[in-house]
Each structure stands twice: as structure tokens, then as C-alpha cells.
């Protein structure tokens, strides 16, 4: 049973409804306050207490309202997903993946083209190197021929000049020798004349000096 408690403070009145206590000491309550539908009601004249509130059906048994709302929500969500949400998202994903794939393919094509250009460049480089090598070899051969010709000419000139120098030296040596020989003959004649008081035979002295000089001086 509900009891109204009226509190007056100044001009204002406040009213509270409280459950009253039954004779047995239990709190009376309104059946509408039960969490679950009351399973039984107290006999006429007795107070309604919490014991009369229902405990509710088994928690394992599905409730129709939960089933209906859950099923409805899921079906709506699944239909939206099937016909609107997923296709929209997937379309965007596919277009991006396609553009990425095309980018990759373009990059691959550019890489292949760059590789073929590098290969062409390398082939041209090899040909140029071979050509340059040929030119260098030819130049080297020409240079070698010219060098040999110059060396031969120089050697011939040197030989000629050596022969002329040797002839001059021989002539000078012969002239020097005849001068030395005549000087030695004069000295020997003078020495013999001083020693013996007579002039020796000039031809014999000349022959003896010539023989002595021919024998060589060590």
C-alpha cells in the first residue's frame, strides 16, 4: 500500500509516496514496480510484497521481442550491406587497386624499356670501344714503323759519322807518329853525335826508330 507523506517547508508543499510496512513487517509495494509480471497475487485484504513479483521466465528461453528486434535489425543491416554499403566500398577499393596495379604495370614497362635502352647503350659502348681499339692499334703500328725508320736513319748517320771520325783519328795518329818518329831520329842522331863525335847513318837510325816504335810501347 502506498502512503503519501506531505512535508510543508515555508510556502511550499512536497509530497512523497512511500511503501508502507505491513503487519508482518514486510514492505508493501505496487505490482507495477516488479521487474517481472507478478506470478500470483495476495489474497484479498493482504498486502502485496516483493515475494509476489515474478522471477521471470528461464533465461535460456528466447524472448519474442528480442528475437523480432534482433532479426529485424540484422536483416535490414544485411540488406543494406548487400545492396548499398558493401558495393559502394568495394567499388572504391577495386578502382584504387586497379589504379595501383596499373601503376605497377607502368613502372614495370618503364623499367623494361630503361633496361633495353641500357642494353643498347652498352652494346654501342662495346662497339665504340672496339673501334677505338682498332684506331689505337693502327696508330700504334704507324708510330712503331716511323720510329723504326727514324732509328735506322739515325743509326746509319751515326755509323757514317763514326767512320769519318775514325778516319780522321787514324790520319791524325799517322801524322803524329811520323812527327814523333822524325823527332826521335833527330834526338838519337844528336845523342850519338854528342857521344861519339860523329854523325850516325841517318837511314840506319830511321830504320831502328821505326822498328822500335812498331814494336809498341807498353
Amino acid at each position: 500500500m502506498l502512503t503519501a507523506v506531505v512535508i510543508r517547508s515555508g510556502e511550499a508543499l512536497r509530497v512523497h509516496f512511500v511503501t508502507s510496512e505491513s503487519d508482518s513487517g514486510e514492505h508493501e509495494m505496487n505490482p507495477a514496480d516488479c521487474a517481472f509480471e507478478p506470478e500470483t497475487y495476495p489474497p484479498e485484504g493482504e498486502a502485496f510484497t516483493v515475494e509476489f513479483c515474478g522471477t521471470g521466465p528461464s533465461p535460456i528461453i528466447p524472448e519474442m521481442k528480442e528475437l523480432a528486434w534482433g532479426a529485424g535489425s540484422f536483416i535490414v543491416f544485411a540488406l543494406l550491406m548487400r545492396f548499398f554499403l558493401f558495393p559502394r566500398l568495394k567499388k572504391g577499393m577495386d578502382s584504387r587497386y586497379t589504379s595501383i596495379r596499373e601503376g605497377h604495370e607502368n613502372a614495370d614497362a618503364t623499367r623494361s624499356s630503361a633496361r633495353s635502352e641500357v642494353a643498347q647503350y652498352e652494346a654501342a659502348l662495346v662497339a665504340a670501344k672496339a673501334e677505338a681499339s682498332k684506331v689505337i692499334d693502327a696508330a700504334r703500328a704507324t708510330l712503331e714503323g716511323e720510329r723504326q725508320t727514324a732509328i735506322t736513319a739515325a743509326n746509319a748517320r751515326i755509323a757514317t759519322e763514326r767512320e769519318a771520325a775514325m778516319s780522321a783519328a787514324d790520319a791524325a795518329r799517322t801524322a803524329g807518329r811520323s812527327q814523333v818518329e822524325s823527332a826521335v831520329v833527330d834526338v838519337v842522331n844528336s845523342a850519338v853525335e854528342v857521344a861519339t863525335g860523329k854523325r850516325p847513318d841517318g837511314s840506319a837510325v830511321s830504320r831502328a826508330v821505326a822498328e822500335a816504335m812498331s814494336a809498341g810501347v807498353r
Partner: peptide
């Protein structure tokens, strides 16, 4: 429970709706 089920469907829809509205490129 019904509230959570409805909210789950709404939140799921909202997530994919917002995701689909962003620039895909």
C-alpha cells in the same frame, strides 16, 4: 537487448556509410 541490436545495426551501417563516402582514390 533490442536497443543493443538496433544500435549495432545502426553503428555498422554508419561505419560503412561513412567509409564509403570517403575518397577511394
Amino acid at each position: 537487448i533490442a536497443l543493443i541490436a538496433v544500435a549495432a545495426a545502426l553503428i555498422g551501417t554508419l561505419i560503412f556509410l561513412l567509409a564509403g563516402s570517403k575518397d577511394a582514390k
